[in-house]
Simulated scan of single mutants.
Amino acid sequence: MTRLNIEPAQPSEAHAVLTDPDLTHTAKVVWTYLSIVSDPQRMRPLAKVLGMAQGTVMRSLRALEAKGLAYREDEAWLAERPVRASDRFIVGYGPERLHDITVHNRKDGSAVIETVSTRPVRAFAKHADGSLVELHGEAKDRALEAFWADVDTFNAEQENGS
């Protein structure tokens, strides 16, 4: 069995995994080890090398698999590079428009009417089966933060010509 990801993870990719608030510390350790070893790892030897219980390693592997950060091939596990937020989320404007109308009275007795029309931003999580689920609350906030961080990274890469 050969390793499919020959290139090591880039610092920004490792940072994305290691700062993911949804992953446990043990899942981060498991991903880091899988991303630097040259061969796919079976679960029991992996647990032994890391000095962790097999159940802990299996839970970590499943959590990584659910986030697309690890996958199983012939009973052995490999790390997968993290995907950008734009690969996990769709961000766009909703079809509805919100209107805010304000009347500003002037000292001379006249008035100015100010209207502002906006469209709310909506965020959807992409699932492996192709379905989309709209995000709300903190999940939406995290998705938007990740999305805009990706936009900033993309813009910086374009400016640097990379």
Results as ranks from 00 to 15, higher is better:
residue 24 T to K: 07
residue 24 T to Y: 01
residue 25 H to N: 09
residue 25 H to A: 05
residue 27 A to C: 04
residue 27 A to P: 03
residue 28 K to S: 05
residue 29 V to R: 13
residue 30 V to L: 02
residue 30 V to G: 13
residue 32 T to I: 00
residue 32 T to C: 10
residue 34 L to E: 10
residue 34 L to I: 10
residue 36 I to M: 05
residue 36 I to S: 06
residue 37 V to F: 01
residue 40 P to Q: 05
residue 40 P to L: 12
residue 41 Q to T: 06
residue 42 R to I: 01
residue 44 R to M: 08
residue 44 R to Q: 11
residue 44 R to H: 11
residue 44 R to T: 14
residue 45 P to C: 12
residue 45 P to H: 12
residue 45 P to K: 12
residue 45 P to E: 13
residue 46 L to R: 12
residue 47 A to C: 08
residue 49 V to P: 00
residue 53 A to W: 00
residue 53 A to S: 10
residue 53 A to C: 01
residue 54 Q to N: 11
residue 54 Q to T: 14
residue 54 Q to V: 13
residue 57 V to A: 14
residue 57 V to F: 04
residue 57 V to S: 07
residue 58 M to T: 04
residue 58 M to G: 00
residue 59 R to A: 04
residue 59 R to V: 02
residue 60 S to Y: 08
residue 61 L to N: 11
residue 61 L to R: 10
residue 61 L to F: 08
residue 61 L to T: 11
residue 62 R to H: 12
residue 62 R to C: 05
residue 63 A to T: 04
residue 63 A to K: 07
residue 63 A to I: 03
residue 63 A to R: 07
residue 64 L to F: 02
residue 64 L to S: 02
residue 65 E to R: 15
residue 65 E to S: 15
residue 66 A to T: 06
residue 67 K to Q: 12
residue 67 K to P: 03
residue 69 L to Y: 07
residue 69 L to S: 06
residue 70 A to L: 06
residue 72 R to A: 13
residue 72 R to C: 13
residue 73 E to V: 15
residue 73 E to W: 14
residue 74 D to H: 13
residue 75 E to G: 02
residue 75 E to H: 04
residue 77 W to P: 08
residue 78 L to G: 00
residue 79 A to R: 04
residue 80 E to G: 14
residue 80 E to L: 12
residue 80 E to P: 00
residue 81 R to P: 05
residue 81 R to W: 08
residue 81 R to V: 03
residue 82 P to K: 08
residue 83 V to S: 13
residue 83 V to T: 14
residue 84 R to L: 12
residue 84 R to E: 11
residue 84 R to W: 03
residue 85 A to E: 06
residue 86 S to V: 09
residue 86 S to L: 04
residue 87 D to S: 13
residue 87 D to C: 08
residue 88 R to P: 01
residue 88 R to C: 10
residue 88 R to Q: 14
residue 88 R to I: 02
residue 89 F to N: 03
residue 90 I to T: 08
residue 91 V to P: 03
residue 91 V to W: 05
residue 91 V to S: 03
residue 92 G to E: 13
residue 92 G to V: 01
residue 92 G to Q: 10
residue 93 Y to C: 00
residue 93 Y to I: 03
residue 94 G to E: 07
residue 94 G to N: 01
residue 94 G to A: 11
residue 95 P to D: 14
residue 95 P to Q: 11
residue 97 R to G: 01
residue 97 R to P: 00
residue 100 D to Q: 10
residue 102 T to Y: 12
residue 102 T to I: 11
residue 104 H to R: 11
residue 105 N to W: 07
residue 105 N to H: 12
residue 106 R to Y: 02
residue 107 K to T: 09
residue 107 K to E: 11
residue 108 D to M: 01
